[in-house]
Design a protein around this nucleic acid. Structure first.
Lengths: 164, 164
DNA sequence: CTTCATGCAAAAGATTTGCAAGTTC
DNA sequence: GAACTTGCAAATCTTTTGCATGAAG
């Protein structure tokens, strides 16, 4: 469901770069480089899906080190600011993140029945957004763009219209 | 900041149509038409801004009738399904809604410094979205599109770049 | 050895739910 | 009268925070 990932040789290099970038953010802010924070970074960047804070807690502990949710919550903004992760699936009730470092930006097409998430990347949108920003005198720093619908599979299963 | 609203003569007609649509949803589901639900609908459609559940509770009570938050929470999905309101500003931590019945669909451009919200409506986006839906075999039912940036005012106040 | 990080438990905030009493159809 | 609503309070869930103890620089 997601764009190709760095699973092999490149993966380690990406992880190192990400960690480097993370340390820089920490230094800039006079914050400490700790095992726990690095473990959180590794856990987050190892995920290929949309994850929640609880998921990271479990991943870190599965990795040997225990971490409290409070600590992960405190670390999340740092990872976001360092460009390692970003919010995903904003329109739903729950808060999800996804690894973004070293990956191309994309948006999501979400099936409201089976919750399948398809990533898409469509430059035309970005161009229009830039046009709009100029028109309203905004300097763009980010965006959320989610398309909600019913995927082909679900339509075939339960009928051809949107009625439930 | 928002598109022109029905404040005068048309407002009442819109409210009636909305209420009609709401009653239909209730009937379809064998749910009851109650004073409380109608008061919630009136409160929601009277708002021209992005509101929260708590705000509706206050509006309804200001209108003479008391209602508990639980009841409003229970009513929200009905209003959404009836097409009277829709989620707005999902990107922040808090959940906001806005009246949508009888109003043109629009998306938001939000200033991350002063939180000004500018509405925009740009048909070109919709066309691209339809194209994408076809490509991925989705039947679109909705979308969420929020542009984040820094407005001209804020840029002039605190410098020309995005650094804070 | 000063400043920051962490875990824990408590707090806070938002939303949901069980239940008894009141309403709608 | 049967089925649905509502308010209330308790329960959940998610995220934040205060504080004492333990590390990083």
């Amino acid at each position: 469901m997601r764009t190709p990932r760095n699973k092999g040789a490149g993966a380690e290099a990406v992880m190192n770069d990400a960690m480097q970038q993370f340390r820089e953010i920490l230094h800039e802010r006079s914050l400490r480089v700790t095992n726990v924070r690095e473990a959180i970074v590794r856990a987050a960047l190892s995920r290929d899906d949309h994850f929640r804070v609880e998921g990271l807690v479990e991943d870190v502990s599965r990795d040997g080190l225990e971490v409290s949710v409070a600590t992960v919550y405190r670390a999340i903004p740092l990872l976001v600011d360092a460009g390692l992760i970003e919010p995903a699936e904003v329109s739903g009730e729950k808060r999800f993140y996804e690894a973004s470092f070293g990956r191309e930006h994309h948006d999501h097409l979400i099936c409201q029945r089976c919750h399948t998430v398809v990533e898409f990347q469509f430059d035309a949108f970005a161009m229009l957004e830039r046009e709009l920003a100029v028109k309203y005198d905004f300097e763009l720093t980010g965006h959320f763009h989610e398309l909600i619908g019913v995927c082909g599979n679900c339509r075939r299963k339960k009928g051809a219209n949107g009625v439930h």
